[in-house]
Design a protein around this nucleic acid. Structure first.
Lengths: 107, 107
DNA sequence: ATTACATATCGCAATATTACGATGATAAAA
DNA sequence: TTTTATCATCGTAATATTGCGATATGTAAT
């Protein structure tokens, strides 16, 4: 099949999984780290920095935008992609809540 | 293509992405939450609890084991799958390091 | 208006993931 | 020993993801 049965899970579970999923690709991790180090960014830098085709980088940026982690501003004829710090913190908090609420000690 | 170009990323980026990826499915989130609430677990409970076929659950458990998050002990004729707390904390720490080191504030 | 540049989107091919039925392996129970 | 129960693995179908070339879109410069 290949289709994830999202309807049998809670919205919280689906959302959480979606955050993890978007972060679950090395290119997207690398993009976030690069932007984090630069404190600014234009997409073309990324193409050289990461080593994937422009179309591919653009697709990854789109996914990072889809969960609100990145915001893009038109800067002349290029784009300035930046980390949405509020959202960043919010997601970090969600993930930590998941980790903290899920600890157990049976074995 | 569909193949991730892991060779152009650092080991740290690949590992981090792998953690996120494994957690990036609602069934696996649900499995961890369920085990966390029970403080113990046998796989068959999960089949009823989650609502996926036994083969599917088994596959998800395997992926959670692959990053060391779960450990399984044979318990009579069933399995006791438990959260590996040390590994759990370790991964939580890795993810938080990533979040803390990647903050920026350009826009 | 034309050109040059930067990014987004489309369409495709290759590969990965998800899900499940069927089957295999193992261990307690009868 | 046969049966039953529990979990793992195999094989397969459906769908998703990844990556890229080609092309579209938009903006700035000439």
């Amino acid at each position: 099949m290949g289709i994830t049965k999202s309807d049998i899970f809670t919205e919280q579970q689906n959302d959480l999984a979606q955050f993890f999923k978007v972060l679950g690709h090395p290119a997207r991790v690398a993009i976030l780290q690069y932007i984090g180090n630069q404190n600014s960014c234009i997409c073309n830098d990324l193409v050289e920095e990461i080593g994937l085709a422009q179309a591919t980088i653009s697709q990854h940026l789109k996914e990072l935008k889809s969960i609100g982690l990145l915001k893009g501003q038109i800067e002349g004829k290029s784009m300035c992609y930046c980390i949405n710090v509020d959202r960043w913190n919010e997601i970090q908090q969600h993930l930590n809540q998941f980790f903290n609420n899920t600890k157990s000690n049976c074995c």
